[in-house]
Simulated scan of single mutants.
Amino acid sequence: MKQSGFVPSSENLPIYYDLYTPDEWSSGQPLPVVLFLHGFKGFKDWGAFPDACAELSRAGFAVLAMNFSLNGVGESMTEFDQLDRFARETLSQDLDDVGSVIAALKNSKIEMSEGIQLDTDVIGIVGHSRGGHTAVAAAAEYPEVKCLVTWSAVADYNARWSSEMVSDWEEKGVTEIINGRTGQIMPVKKIVHEDALENADRLMAVKRVEELSIPALFVHSRGDEAVPYSEAEKLYEHCTSEQKEILLMPDSGHTFDTSHPFDGEDFPDIFQEVVTATREWFQNYLQ
């Protein structure tokens, strides 16, 4: 079962979400919550992500997939039609958006189907790529988060800015990137870089992972062309939790052999393994 809506961000912009719950839930027990965070140039409806969230929910979770308020995707849910917002999407705002969603869940601002209750003190979080980076910071920031999974996560975003990007920001206040899938030229303003530098202790995953005592699973493809698997190794090594694992998958790219749009009946084998490992991790540590 899927319900959709939005909650306001700290700027009063919509944080669109889809909430997946089991079609049948007769135990009477509150459902643990799992938050799903998309990555850079991503969105909650990308590729196989909705199907993965639905599969996780069938295992007895309420899975909330969210679009960050500044991710650049508006009511279409799939098109980057708000590039003015994308241009200033800071890591701080992303992290605050997670907090806004948690607060909305705890304050019953998100409508539930009849008979469904949520355990909002027991929240898991899974994030892909930049979303995995934010998921680590959120796990350290918000005490409700009790379990973490990352997919293809960045370890240190401040290590990813190229010299060309920094030069553009210094000279023009903005740099431009190309969306390889759509061909769009997408602006990124200097504030994004400044925010990451000024708030590094709060925002950088490689720093925040040192604060974790919750179960943490780091999943990555050995053939990731966008974020090398050494990033997962770095997060794993710096993580202070006694319950941590790293799962390195065979070569399957940044998105584990999936693409957008996704219309297959079955997941690619590697992606199915990732979803299964994620489900089992949450079953072991949230249920």
Rank of each mutant, 00 (worst) to 15 (best):
Ala135Pro: 09
Ala135Gln: 03
Ala135Met: 12
Ala135Gly: 09
Val136Asn: 00
Ala138Phe: 11
Ala139Thr: 10
Ala139Asn: 06
Tyr142Lys: 03
Pro143Asp: 12
Pro143Ile: 04
Glu144Cys: 04
Glu144Gly: 01
Glu144Leu: 01
Lys146Thr: 12
Ser152Ala: 15
Ala153Arg: 00
Ala153Cys: 12
Asp156Val: 05
Asp156Met: 03
Tyr157Leu: 13
Asn158His: 10
Ala159Ser: 12
Ala159Ile: 02
Arg160Ala: 07
Arg160Glu: 06
Met165Lys: 07
Ser167Gln: 13
Asp168Gly: 03
Trp169Gln: 04
Glu170Gln: 09
Glu176Val: 07
Ile177Thr: 12
Ile177Asp: 04
Ile178Cys: 11
Ile178Trp: 08
Asn179Gly: 14
Gly180Met: 14
Arg181Phe: 11
Thr182Ala: 07
Gly183Tyr: 15
Gly183Cys: 10
Pro187Asn: 14
Pro187Val: 05
Pro187Gln: 11
Pro187Ser: 13
Val188Cys: 12
Val188Phe: 10
Lys189Asp: 15
Lys189Thr: 02
Lys190Asp: 14
Val192Asn: 04
Val192Ile: 13
His193Pro: 12
Glu194Gly: 02
Asp195Asn: 14
Leu197Asp: 03
Glu198Gln: 09
Asn199Gly: 01
Asn199Gln: 12
Asp201Arg: 14
Arg202Tyr: 08
Arg202Thr: 04
Leu203Asp: 02
Leu203Met: 02
Met204Gln: 15
Ala205Val: 09
Val206Ile: 15
Val206Arg: 10
Val206Gln: 02
Lys207Met: 02
Lys207Asn: 14
Lys207Leu: 06
Lys207Arg: 15
Arg208Pro: 04
Glu210Asp: 10
Glu211Lys: 14
Leu212Val: 00
Leu212Gly: 02
Ser213Phe: 01
Ile214Tyr: 05
Pro215Val: 07
Pro215Asn: 04
Ala216Cys: 15
Ala216Lys: 01
Leu217Lys: 02
Leu217Pro: 00
His220Glu: 10
Gly223Tyr: 10
Asp224Thr: 02
Glu225Ser: 09
Ala226Phe: 13
Val227His: 01
Val227Asn: 01
Ser230Trp: 05
Glu231Ser: 12
Glu231Trp: 03
Ala232Phe: 13
Ala232Tyr: 12
Glu233Cys: 11
Leu235Met: 10
Tyr236Gly: 00
Tyr236Ser: 00
Glu237Lys: 13
His238Lys: 14
Ser241Asn: 12
Ser241Asp: 03
Gln243Gly: 02
Lys244Asn: 08
Glu245Tyr: 13
Ile246Asp: 01
Pro250Phe: 04
Pro250Ala: 09
Asp251Trp: 11
Asp251Asn: 14
Ser252Gln: 04
Phe256Met: 10
Asp257Cys: 04
Thr258Glu: 08
Ser259Leu: 02
His260Ser: 08
Pro261Ser: 08
Pro261Ile: 01
Phe262Ser: 08
Phe262Glu: 15
Phe262Met: 07
Phe262Gly: 05
Asp263Tyr: 08
Asp263Gln: 11
Glu265Gly: 09
Asp266Glu: 15
Asp266Tyr: 08
Phe267Tyr: 05
Pro268Phe: 00
Pro268Gln: 04
Asp269Ile: 04
Ile270Asn: 10
Gln272Asp: 14
Gln272Trp: 05
Glu273Pro: 11
Val274Trp: 03
Val275Leu: 06
Thr276His: 15
Thr276Met: 05
Ala277Val: 01
Ala277Ser: 14
Thr278His: 09
